[in-house]
Design a protein around this nucleic acid. Structure first.
Lengths: 191, 191
DNA sequence: CCGTAACAAACGAACGTTCGTTTGTCTATG
DNA sequence: CATAGACAAACGAACGTTCGTTTGTTACGG
């Protein structure tokens, strides 16, 4: 008989899964316990509060997106290369961490003011990376001159963030096809 | 002193506002009562359950989007004209009924199976309208030949649905500017 | 190598609070 | 005067969390 014991990371991961599926307020500590074969009360051996779990999941999401943006901004080559790196990195973050990404995108507003403003700042910085690269693309002639980097970055991020809503691992588009389709769509929109 | 009494529509409208802001599970009947200057229990003079309120709001959303799609499909002229009508109608629905739209887009999954599958069907039909018009555009030479109407409709709807997340009535883009920017972006992406 | 102390993980009961909802009563309006 | 709207009290269930305790594993001194 294999009695696997749970670690804190198991709890955080399961929390991400349930928060993504049912929402933060739609998930009870007893729900979360059941998911791990535990009582709700047993979770407090690993975490200090339910809010704490949300903080952990959302901050991991913020870290993942931030790292992806930093990586893309450092890509040498044309603005088009960096633009594609932003898209490729975003796709990787979402499909490799779908629960974290969904919780980050949908449940961050349930955080208290302090933590939420940290997340808002992270999101603004992430959008700033897109704006920067798009502005580079405009000034270097890769994109149309009449596009507004601010508005365009919102539109492009809209398409990327929606991935969380419809992507299925067993769907017809694998990672590479997804990046191709998204890059083509977004690049065409700006060219 | 004007003590306006509340009607059922007042309750549904306030429910839409709170569901949009805090989510269905993040809104209590006492919260909703406070919003109207009532006790939570007083709401039961108007509705039979909290779930009922969600059904009302979400179904109104479904009706609004469906009507908009029907209207756009009936537009005479080029596929480009119908495509712009789809976008224009979507923008109108969202900015004129922001709370209903947000609840429809984000809280429909909290419905029980029966009602949710009705909403999923409505959403599929709405996406179908986009797919149809895009396919017309491809076969009549308005859009690129190598685009997939199914994938493209998802991408275009991603941009439109995200409007709910960042649109502010006092923002720099008014309705017409919004329709212009979105139509330009989407049409460029497909051309 | 054995025995024991320390520890982390989980239990199960209970806490106070909030939840959605029901009930019976009052009040104002048409 | 009938009725719809609101009140206020109360219901049982569920909530997040705490508590004292038990269990299984790990580390170490003799």
């Amino acid at each position: 008989m294999v009695t696997t014991r749970n670690t804190r990371d198991d709890v955080v991961q399961a929390a991400g899964r349930l928060f993504a599926e049912r929402g933060y307020h739609g998930t009870s500590m007893r729900d979360l316990g059941s998911e791990l074969g535990l009582l709700g009360s047993s979770l407090y051996a690993h975490v200090s509060s339910k809010q704490d779990l949300l903080v952990d999941v959302v901050e991991e999401g913020a870290r993942l997106f931030e790292a992806s943006a930093q990586n893309a901004l450092a890509v040498e080559g044309t603005p088009g290369d960096r633009f594609r790196a932003l898209i490729s990195g975003h796709v990787d973050v979402v499909i490799d961490n779908i629960d974290v990404a969904r919780t980050f995108l949908n449940e961050a507003r349930m955080l208290d003011h302090e933590h939420r403003s940290r997340v808002v700042a992270a999101r603004d910085a992430y959008e700033g990376a897109f704006r920067t690269v798009i502005a580079q693309g405009v000034s270097e002639g890769y994109f149309r001159e009449d596009i507004d980097p601010k508005t365009s970055s919102i539109f492009v991020l809209s398409v990327l963030n929606a991935l969380e809503r419809w992507y299925r691992p067993d769907g017809p588009l694998d990672r590479d096809a997804l990046v191709d389709e998204l890059s083509m769509f977004a690049a065409s929109a700006l060219s």
